[in-house]
Design a protein around this nucleic acid. Structure first.
Lengths: 163, 163
DNA sequence: TCATCATTGGCATTATATGCCAACACATAA
DNA sequence: TTATGTGTTGGCATATAATGCCAATGATGA
């Protein structure tokens, strides 16, 4: 990614588009205090530089029938490349897996899994997760409630942000 | 939320808008095989019903200087309402905390924390997290690499989805 | 077959995006 | 202080898109 340094105008644009990704350029320009044309130019630069990776609709999980979130810690036996990449490839193809990180510490991988309900999770666990290659331990942690879920990143508290 | 039943057209609209939240209505209508006006009407209904919660720009974390993701398991002493809600309120105000779930099992709360780097996390841990009320244990798991991060939910595999 | 209801497609109007060019602001050097 | 160069801005004209309205179409049930 090309190095880009963001000024306050850029940060305000990013904050606004994280909050509402469908703001019209006219609205956005008013919000950040520019006229439409330079505002649009900055947005295009942020897009081309890769700072803005895309725009996405956020759905209500319950509303589309995906009410249960489970965090799954998974240990794999040994980290030989073959088993490891087989596991990664498998995970990438599972629609129920929303995110997967390789972690230091406790478990090897942390998966966020989204399914309709508990029976669906049991099916997914038995029918899919437990059959993945190289796994030695699986620990399921059910989300009882969502205390906080941000769709965006806070830029205001970063070093370099003035005001 | 009003009960809404989604047909295949709705699901295709949702899939398209999750992938690209700034699709023009004309493009969207072509993609799902409708003319612009009924397509727009369906989108508005999905928005009003709450199925679509919003639209957001996705930023590159590294690009905005937030390269380190940490999953933090936190145990609180006892779940009396006062300590509990004090903790929740505190967490909600922390810009570094991207998400926080109340979990069954291992830890009480799971936080996803995003910071620039390891020194910044140390400052955040010492200066903020460890000072939160009622905490008895904190376990930090650093994301070494991101195996998968989806911005949207897969609807194709849900019961009721045809084709 | 016919009636009813919901959904669709096309059109006209209003609003928005986007490319172009001249003017402005800031930094550097004389 | 003045001159010069570089980058950014604002406004205008044109192309594109959004949106409301109405007649037409298709599905459902009697």
């Amino acid at each position: 990614m090309p190095e880009v340094k963001l000024d306050n105008l850029d940060r305000r644009i990013l904050a606004a588009l994280q909050r509402d990704g469908r703001l019209s350029n006219v609205q956005l320009s008013e919000e950040v205090g520019l006229s439409p044309s330079p505002c649009l130019r900055r947005v295009r630069l942020l897009e081309q530089s890769g700072i803005i990776r895309g725009y996405h609709a956020e759905l209500d999980r319950g509303g589309v029938g995906l009410g249960l979130t489970v965090f799954v810690g998974i240990k794999v036996g040994q980290h030989d490349d073959e088993v490891d990449s087989a596991f990664r490839d498998a995970v990438a193809d599972l629609p129920e897996v929303v995110s997967c990180y390789l972690l230091s510490g406790e478990s090897d991988f942390l998966l966020q899994v989204v399914v309709p309900d508990l029976p669906a999770y049991e099916r997914f666990l038995r029918g899919t997760l437990l059959k993945l290659p190289g796994i030695t331990d699986i620990r399921s942690n059910f989300a009882i409630s969502t205390v906080k879920r941000e769709t965006g990143l806070s830029l205001a508290h970063l070093p370099g942000a003035a005001g």
